[in-house]
């Protein structure tokens, strides 16, 4: 969308907290820690749904109130979304607490599969499936549907798309909401996976997201996918060998990629 949103990490954290709150509430009903498999799945689904909703609402609010005033001005976008991210993180601290929280996870989602002596965490499988589904979905919408055409056209020239009879402002609000909602769902999955959340988790993950996007090239979903694979693999290997340098390894990769391809792997010169 040609909007630089540094508040994306905040959506991520909000999603995690929304999921956390839902799981906590459902645990009061005895669904989560002691519930059956069905109740466990249902409560995780409800948590993800809550994250989706909260992400959408926050995205709507942020886009309408703030971002719509700074379209086309990257400098202001960066400055203002940085501020928004700070405010959202602070509100989390006010509503919950500045400290870490432990996420309650249904029993059926902990534990792991054992496939030919390789131990695979159960929730990891869920995460991979959801991730691939989202990637395929985004690709399909952008490339094949009318909506995708409108969005791609709107990024290039808002005015022309408007004069063709589309309310581009409303469409972009929708796209922004969708992005925020996806980030929030990602956040709640992360929270369930790690079983622990902090108000700063948004910032930490934003750094990874930025590195992924820089490596992959801006505006390319496939590039982001490649970048995410590289970052994830490098992080895990280095974290296994020298845990303290894991982030450094990713920055090193980013530096090397920028040296060879200044626009990122799949980025095109503009």
């Amino acid at each position: 969308m040609d909007v630089l949103n540094l508040a994306h990490g905040a959506f991520f954290a909000w999603g995690a907290y929304a999921g956390f709150a839902v799981l906590n509430a459902l645990n009061g009903l005895g669904w989560v820690e002691t519930g059956t498999l069905g109740q466990g799945i249902l409560s995780v689904l409800l948590a993800l749904l809550a994250a989706l909703a909260i992400g959408g609402v926050l995205g709507l609010f942020l886009e309408r109130v703030i971002i719509q005033r700074v379209y086309g001005d990257h400098l202001k976008q960066i400055l203002i979304t940085m501020g928004a991210s700070m405010v959202l993180a602070e509100v989390i601290k006010v509503l919950w607490s500045p400290n870490n929280q432990t996420v309650l996870v249904p029993l059926s989602f902990t534990g792991s599969y054992d496939v030919m002596d390789v131990v695979i965490n159960k929730f990891r499988v869920v995460a991979i499936v959801v991730g691939l589904a989202v990637y395929a979905g985004v690709m399909a919408v952008m490339q094949k549907t009318k909506l995708g055409i409108i969005i791609r056209a709107g990024v290039e020239n808002r005015e022309v798309v408007q004069t063709l009879g589309y309310n581009i402002n409303r469409i972009f609000t929708g796209v922004f909401m969708a992005g925020a909602a996806l980030a929030a769902v990602g956040g709640s999955m992360w929270g369930i996976f790690r079983e622990q959340i902090t108000p700063a988790m948004g910032d930490e993950n934003l750094i990874f997201a930025l590195i992924v996007v820089i490596i992959g090239g801006m505006g390319s979903v496939t590039g982001s996918f490649l970048g995410a694979c590289m970052v994830g693999l490098a992080f895990n290997y280095v974290a296994y060998l020298v845990p303290k340098l894991a982030l450094g390894a990713n920055i090193l990769i980013m530096v090397i990629i920028l040296l060879i391809k200044p626009w990122g792997l799949m980025g095109r010169e503009q």
Binding site: I149, E156, V160, Q162
Partner: peptide
Amino acid sequence: PYAVARAGVGFVPEDQAVLRGLTVEE
């Protein structure tokens, strides 16, 4: 603008404002 367009006014801006990233079909 979008309402004017839907009312039946077509607009061809100056400087050949086609959407370069899209195919002719799109």
